[in-house]
Design a protein around this nucleic acid. Structure first.
Lengths: 176, 176
DNA sequence: CCCAATATACATCGGGGCTATATATAAGCC
DNA sequence: GGCTTATATATAGCCCCGATGTATATTGGG
């Protein structure tokens, strides 16, 4: 799923600036599974404009850069649906944490414990965030995705807590 | 986690060619969460060789390209541990399937059903593969990671099956 | 028995995307 | 008063992935 398609999708929810598109990845519904950086969003929006899939209106602001507010066009909506009708690329998951766990036997026990603690804290923060959404999910799709994300985080946290002793050294266990 | 570090990690399990490193991502233990393409592995191995983190021996073969068998050096092991002691980059998950589900209301009901069916089949295949590993997990880390992967896939499959009706149209339900 | 598919093996190019950086200002906090 | 955070756009450089190219051997189906 390239960044251009992702931008089109977000713009179906309403007009937005590049900055707001980026922010929406951190919000509820789009929380997990999707993200993109400024370095790809701004070029993507330029190309979408050239291709007529989005339109821009510049709103001048006092002593700030102009806001460039993008709207999806009819052609843009068609392009989005067309992209979703084609065979989807496979998921991609890269987890440096999990990679590190594969080599826990090469690390000092304290490091392994610290990594697991940090990862659990991160998961709990994500869960808390999705439990109290800033904007409630509007569509059935958003509710479905939010629920899936929560289910996966709950499973992951439970697994980490019940199995961490297997990779933490005996020293770590004694220290608890 | 850049590809160079990933290559170092895999080489701690034993010497390997670039081809074998790539294969190991599809295997048990390294199944999910980690992968890299030839287009990054071969350049990475060249650079690691220049930096003295791995060594190469070329094994000539009859009527085939020479095997370039890489071994990790002491400096390489130190570099791996050093990388794992630094703050880890955050996980990255990109799921075109989940993205598509966010826009299920824009798609024909049949398409949504087909996507969910395909995704369930994919998850089941992954689960079956990890249930019958080619090479049994050697370290506690590998067992831990394999178990985590299985737990997440099980949760995901259960969620899809119990919640799919929420985003499949009434027409799709009637057709079943 | 032949052909297609799969596996072994290395390598590169083009394009796409991320990180870091640059620029500018306002608001809130310590 | 200065630091951090938030708003807002933009680009250069590097990293990485996908596709493709080059060879050959084996295996399974028709």
């Amino acid at each position: 799923m390239d960044v251009r398609t992702i931008c089109l999708g977000i713009l179906t929810r309403g007009d937005a600036t590049g900055y707001e598109i980026k922010k929406s990845f951190e919000e509820d519904g789009y929380q997990h599974f999707v993200e993109a950086s400024f370095g790809s969003i701004y070029p993507a929006l330029n190309r979408l404009t050239e291709e007529g899939l989005v339109s821009v209106r510049e709103e001048a602001q006092e002593k700030r850069p102009d806001r460039k507010v993008y709207s999806i066009t009819k052609a843009g909506r068609q392009a989005l649906v067309a992209a979703l009708m084609k065979p989807l690329p496979e998921d991609k998951h890269r987890s440096p944490f999990v990679f590190a766990m594969l080599f826990s036997h090469l690390l000092p026990p304290g490091r392994v414990t610290a990594l697991i603690d940090a990862y659990i804290a991160y998961g709990e923060a994500k869960l808390a965030q999705s439990a109290q959404p800033k904007t409630k999910p509007q569509t059935a799709g958003e509710r479905f995705v939010t629920g899936l994300g929560r289910a996966i985080y709950l499973t992951m946290l439970d697994y980490l807590r019940t199995h961490r002793a297997e990779i933490e050294g005996p020293a770590a266990e004694a220290a608890e």
